[in-house]
Each structure stands twice: as structure tokens, then as C-alpha cells.
């Protein structure tokens, strides 16, 4: 077992983990942060996406021991003081989710995308979300939501 200390959704969490423990399993099983779901076992789907030090990462492809000292944001920690992030609001407004299983990853990947590119074109949004699969929406409304959130965050 290896000891790790990680700030998750604003709280410093300590844990003893096996070297092989995946970050997503540590979040879900040990910390009970089940808002981050698992959709595949080949790192294709992106459902488990979280922010590690502000950058999106698939938490099924990261070992828990690798995030020692890092700051992680999951979907459960994205809203600030009860105020939803503009991406969360836009997903609701644009009906950018149906079953909601891809949604945590899709939202956090979108947050990362917008931190890099404040005014993405449709094509840039589509390429930015290429690593996150959705089976319900056909992506149409997700793309609309990200564009709406971008405008909101630019103050338009």
C-alpha cells in the first residue's frame, strides 16, 4: 500500500492504495465520489473524465498514486457555492444530455476545452470532445451547449 494525499473537490483526502489502483476506482470505491462513472475499459469513452490540476484526464487511465499532491475536480465539485458552472447550465438549457452517463465527463472535457479556447468554432468543439462518447444525443445539443457556455463565459 502506498500513501497518497490529494485535494479532491476542495478537500485534502488521504488514502492508502495499491500501486495498481486506478484513480477512478479510488474516487468511487474509497472516497465514495460516485458522480464519476466508468463507461469502458479501453480509455475510449471518457465518461470518467475529471480535471487534474485544471486539465481534463480520463481517470481510468491514471493510477491513484500518480496524482499524489495534485488537485482534482470531479463533477461533484464543479459548482461553486451552489452556483452551477456555465457549462452545466448550458447543458441543461440546450438539452445536452439524456441518460446522463457521459455527462460528467462531457462537462469536464468541455470546461477544459473552453479554458484553452474561449471562442471555439463548431468544428473545434467537435474535435475538442472527440475523446468523449455519447450514445443518446448525437452530440448536436452538446455542441450547442458548449457554444452557449463559451458565449456566457466571454460575457456575451
Amino acid at each position: 500500500m502506498i500513501h497518497i494525499g490529494v485535494t479532491v473537490d476542495g478537500i485534502l483526502r488521504h488514502g492508502d492504495v495499491e500501486p495498481r489502483t486506478l484513480l477512478v476506482h479510488w474516487l468511487r470505491e474509497d472516497l465514495g465520489l460516485v458522480g464519476t462513472p466508468i463507461g469502458c475499459d479501453t480509455s475510449n469513452c471518457g465518461a470518467c473524465t475529471v480535471l487534474i490540476d485544471g486539465r481534463s484526464a480520463k481517470s481510468c487511465s491514471v493510477l491513484a498514486v500518480q496524482v499524489e499532491g495534485a488537485t482534482i475536480t470531479t463533477i461533484q465539485g464543479l459548482a461553486q457555492d451552489g452556483e452551477w458552472h456555465p457549462v452545466q447550465k448550458a447543458f441543461k438549457e440546450c438539452h445536452g444530455l439524456q441518460c446522463g452517463y457521459c455527462t460528467p465527463g462531457m462537462v469536464l472535457a468541455s470546461v477544459d476545452l473552453l479554458s484553452e479556447n474561449a471562442n471555439p468554432t463548431e468544428d473545434e468543439i467537435r474535435h475538442g470532445l472527440e475523446g468523449n462518447l455519447c450514445r443518446c444525443t448525437g452530440y448536436h445539443n452538446i455542441v450547442k451547449a458548449v457554444a452557449m457556455a463559451a458565449a456566457e463565459m466571454r460575457g456575451e
Binding site: 468511487r28 465520489l33 460516485v34 458522480g35 464519476t36 462513472p37 466508468i38 470531479t74 463533477i75 461533484q76 464543479l78 459548482a79 452551477w84 452545466q88 447543458f91 441543461k92 438549457e93 438539452h95 444530455l97 441518460c99 446522463g100 452517463y101 455527462t103 460528467p104 462537462v107
Partner: peptide
Amino acid sequence: RRKEDARLLTGRTNWTD
């Protein structure tokens, strides 16, 4: 706008797993 979205967008969902 859907009632379901609040829990789905904040990670308060109750998946079987």
C-alpha cells in the same frame, strides 16, 4: 427544461454501480 438534469449534471445520480 428537464427535471432530471439537476442530479445528472452534478453527479448526484444513482447508478446501480
